[in-house]
């Protein structure tokens, strides 16, 4: 059976977050199983399921050129803004 990745939106206003994976015959069944496995205890308000094989992932070899260049560039970080206390989930 194909593998699916499950994304759960914990609350309105937040983005979907990866929750885990499961196996199912098709997307409809995967959605039902996602509900059973990942949202039974009020974890979410919305679900996405995506076939794992449809995800294009970076490879181990890509890491040096993808991620290392970000090192030592603190001027790229938006650290100088004060976040209002009422803003949550950012």
């Amino acid at each position: 059976m194909p593998l699916f990745e499950v994304f759960v939106r914990p609350r309105r206003g937040l983005q979907h977050q990866h929750a885990g994976s499961l196996r199912a015959e098709d997307a409809e069944l995967a959605l039902q199983y996602a509900r059973e496995i990942y949202t039974r205890r009020r974890e979410g308000v919305s679900l996405w399921v995506v076939r794992s094989s449809d995800i294009t992932a970076s490879q181990e070899d890509d890491a040096p050129m993808f991620f290392d260049p970000a090192d030592g560039k603190p001027y790229r970080d938006a650290t100088f803004y004060e976040l209002p206390s009422k803003v949550r989930g950012l």
């Binding site: 059976m1 196996r23 039902q32 199983y33 059973e36 496995i37």
Partner: peptide, 11 residues
């Protein structure tokens, strides 16, 4: 038949 269905049945 499989783990996911097992959880669904139990739920």
């Amino acid at each position: 038949p499989w783990l996911e269905e097992d959880l669904a049945m139990a739920n």
